[in-house]
Simulated scan of single mutants.
Amino acid sequence: MQEEQHQYLEKEELYEHYNFVATAGQEPLRVDKFLMNFIENATRSKLQQAAKAGNVLVNDVAVKSNHKVKPNDVVRVVLSYPPAENLLVAENIPLDIVFEDETLIVVNKPAGMVVHPGHGNYSGTLVNGLIYHIENLPSNSNERPGLVHRIDKDTSGLLVVAKTEFAMAHLSKQFFDRTTERLYYALVWGNVEDDEGTIEGNIGRSLKNRLQMAVFPDGDFGKHAITHYKVLERLTYVTLVQCKLETGRTHQIRAHFKHIGHTLFNDERYGGNDILKGTTFTKYKQFVHNCFKVLPRQALHAKTLGFTHPITGEFMKFDSNVPEDITDCIEKWRTYSENSKNITPED
Rank of each mutant, 00 (worst) to 15 (best):
G190L: 09
A186L: 07
Q242L: 11
E196C: 13
R234W: 04
I134G: 08
E193N: 06
N191D: 15
G190C: 15
K173E: 12
E181N: 14
L240R: 05
G124F: 11
K230C: 04
I203K: 05
L130C: 12
P110R: 09
N191T: 15
G157Y: 01
Y132M: 12
G118T: 14
Y184N: 11
E165Y: 09
F99H: 01
V106H: 07
L104Q: 09
V148C: 06
R182Q: 12
V241P: 08
G201P: 11
E100W: 10
M168P: 01
E181R: 15
D152S: 03
T125I: 06
Y122M: 11
V115A: 01
I151W: 08
R178M: 03
L158N: 05
H149D: 05
T164P: 00
D96L: 04
F175M: 05
H133W: 14
L207E: 14
A162G: 02
D96G: 08
R234H: 15
I97F: 14
G118Y: 02
V127R: 10
D96W: 07
Y132T: 12
T164L: 05
V241S: 09
E181G: 15
P217A: 14
R234Y: 02
F166V: 00
R234A: 07
D101F: 11
V215G: 10
L187I: 07
Y122E: 10
T227L: 01
V160W: 03
V107Y: 07
P117G: 03
G190Y: 10
R150Y: 00
E200P: 03
D194P: 07
V114H: 05
D195A: 12
L240F: 04
Y132E: 14
R210F: 13
T239K: 01
S172G: 01
K173M: 08
T236V: 07
G190V: 06
A186T: 10
L130D: 04
G197P: 02
I199V: 15
I134L: 13
K244T: 13
L187A: 11
L159G: 03
V127K: 05
L207D: 14
H149Y: 03
L187W: 06
T180Y: 13
G120D: 04
R144K: 05
A214P: 02
Q242C: 13
D152Q: 05
L147Y: 03
E143Q: 13
G222D: 09
V148P: 00
T198Y: 06
T164A: 04
E165P: 00
D218P: 00
F221A: 14
V106T: 06
S172Y: 08
R150V: 06
N136W: 02
V148Q: 01
L158C: 09
P217F: 11
S141D: 13
N202R: 10
L235A: 09
V241K: 05
E165G: 07
D218N: 09
F176M: 12
R205C: 10
R144S: 09
P217H: 10
G190I: 12
I226M: 02
R182N: 14
E196S: 13
V115K: 07
T236P: 00
H149C: 01
D101E: 13
A214H: 03
H119S: 15
D154Y: 04
S123F: 14
D96T: 11
